[in-house]
Amino acid sequence: MSADALLTIEGLKKHFPVRGRLFNRSNDSVKAVDGVSLSVRKGETLGLVGESGCGKSTLGRCLLRLEEPTGGRIVFDGQDLLTLDKPAMRRLRRDMQIIFQDPYSSLNPRKAVGAIIGDAFRVHGLHKGAGRRRKVEELLSLVGLRPEHYDRFPHEFSGGQRQRIGIARALALDPKFIVADEAVSALDVSIQAQILNLLVSLQRRLGLTYIFISHNLGVVRHVSDRVGVMYLGRIVELAPTAALFARPAHPYTEALLSAVPRPSVGTASKRIILAGDPPSPLRPPSGCAFHPRCPHRQDICMRETPPLKDLAPDRAAACHFPLTLAAATPAATH
């Protein structure tokens, strides 16, 4: 655990029980998040990528205890989150906020923007009376909206503006840490760029720390200092952004990067087309969850789940035969 970590997660798990079909006897569970350990440094952006169902959003929600984790530890700013009672957790939530994908469904359509953003002040008993309005108007300006927008309703805004409202709401309590969960995924490219720029400049001005969850690898490369790649509830690779995109270590990362169509011609790189679908978290494959689709699998991959191992300073992968270091180190010594 590094000293400058704002957030440290150890062995975090979120298992959802599955009801059995026959006499309700099933002990099955969907292991949406299955033993994730990582830390996020103050002021950095950690990107989390992966395909649908990999657990990245559940992980993000667990960090704020919007989902109650099944196991593991979350240490935020020196406090062990999972041991906090409700009032203590509510106090701490001032420091931790989340921005969602669909700004429309996450804004109450019957409340004016001023009330939506000011709600946080009401809950925490801050900025009473005229001071509250002034504070909300400041926030509106901060995210590129106008103070006059205070009395308008969500439907009067475009998708990009609604996401600005969502960001203003997240910033209201002056948080240290923000989970952005597919925050720009619903937006058109030209608006996406505006919102990304806003998030980047707010981070600089306010010294924010981000976990940026997205399926869009271009967006993640753009905003992240480090990137974690998830597959079926686990982190399979964790690396500084430039290193990950230049030399992926996990075969899944390699395939994922190669699958993205480039917006340019004549640069067609070798594409690895993975066979099949991502496995169902209800029936995860034995050993390494990626082995049924992995072009490099060996026998051991079907038997043993590879742990997330350090390959180099600041680089880790959960693979018996990682790509970059495969030649340098004899893999699978255990």
Binding site: V189, S190, Q192, A193, L196, N216, L217, G218, V219, V220, R221, H222, V223, A242, F245, L257, V260, R262, P263, S264, T267, S269
Partner: peptide
């Protein structure tokens, strides 16, 4: 305005 995954 597209954030590129093939360029830093």
């Amino acid at each position: 305005s597209i954030p590129r995954m093939d360029e830093p």
